[in-house]
Simulated scan of single mutants.
Amino acid sequence: MNAPVPDPADVFAYVSGRVEHAAHALWPGAIVGLGPHVPSGDRYVQRLDVDERPLFAKVSLLGSSLVSVLRGTLGDWAAIRARQDAYTATPGGLLERETIQYGILHTARLRAPRIAGYSGGVLFT
């Protein structure tokens, strides 16, 4: 018997909530306006404004593609969410490494997104 496929609305609501929480953790007291989800096959990407500053937020779900999550390849939503909490708490996750790599590229004056912040498994550019 196959695990039920996660409902995209549940996945997007969960990840959007993490984006909002991380933004408030990085910029306490700021006005955070969540924007639309930006289509991406590998990560959840969402536009947002923090005190009217336009940003993008990226979240990696278990270091896997968003498509795999939505197709149920990684299990049901309850299992994914539980594993995501552990994944986010583990140092050296995908987006943490990407944050470091962007910093190196930026320091070398190569074209890379400017990092606005990283918190709770959410990368802001």
Rank of each mutant, 00 (worst) to 15 (best):
N2V: 08
A3F: 01
A3I: 00
P4A: 08
V5P: 00
V5A: 01
V5Y: 00
P6T: 01
P8E: 03
A9T: 05
A9F: 03
D10F: 03
D10S: 06
F12L: 03
Y14K: 00
Y14L: 13
Y14W: 12
Y14S: 02
S16L: 09
G17V: 06
G17M: 04
R18N: 01
V19R: 00
V19H: 01
H21M: 09
H21K: 14
H21E: 13
A22E: 01
A22K: 07
A23K: 04
A23L: 02
H24N: 11
L26W: 04
W27F: 13
G29P: 08
A30D: 05
A30Y: 04
A30G: 06
A30R: 10
V32G: 08
L34I: 04
L34C: 04
L34P: 02
G35W: 02
P36H: 07
H37S: 07
V38G: 02
P39E: 12
P39K: 10
P39S: 12
S40N: 15
G41S: 14
D42A: 07
D42H: 12
D42Y: 08
D42P: 00
D42K: 14
R43G: 00
Y44V: 14
V45R: 05
Q46Y: 05
D49S: 09
D49I: 06
D51Y: 04
D51L: 03
E52F: 13
R53H: 11
P54E: 06
L55Q: 00
F56N: 13
A57K: 10
A57L: 10
K58E: 10
V59F: 10
V59L: 12
L61R: 01
L62C: 10
L62N: 11
S64W: 01
S65K: 14
V69G: 01
V69P: 00
L70T: 03
G72D: 07
G72Y: 04
G72I: 01
T73Y: 08
T73W: 07
G75Y: 03
D76Q: 03
W77N: 03
W77R: 01
W77G: 03
A78M: 04
A79D: 08
I80P: 08
A82F: 04
A82Q: 10
A82S: 13
A82C: 07
Q84N: 13
Y87H: 11
Y87N: 05
Y87W: 09
Y87F: 14
T88K: 02
A89R: 08
P91R: 12
G92M: 04
G93T: 09
L94I: 05
R97C: 14
E98P: 02
I100M: 13
Q101M: 13
Y102E: 08
Y102D: 11
Y102P: 04
G103S: 11
I104P: 07
A108F: 06
A108P: 06
A108R: 11
R109I: 10
R109K: 13
L110F: 04
R111K: 13
R111G: 12
A112Y: 09
P113M: 13
I115K: 15
A116Q: 11
A116T: 06
A116F: 07
G117I: 04
Y118M: 02
S119H: 15
G120M: 15
G120N: 14
G121C: 13
G121W: 08
G121F: 11
G121D: 09
V122I: 10
V122F: 09
L123H: 12
T125R: 14
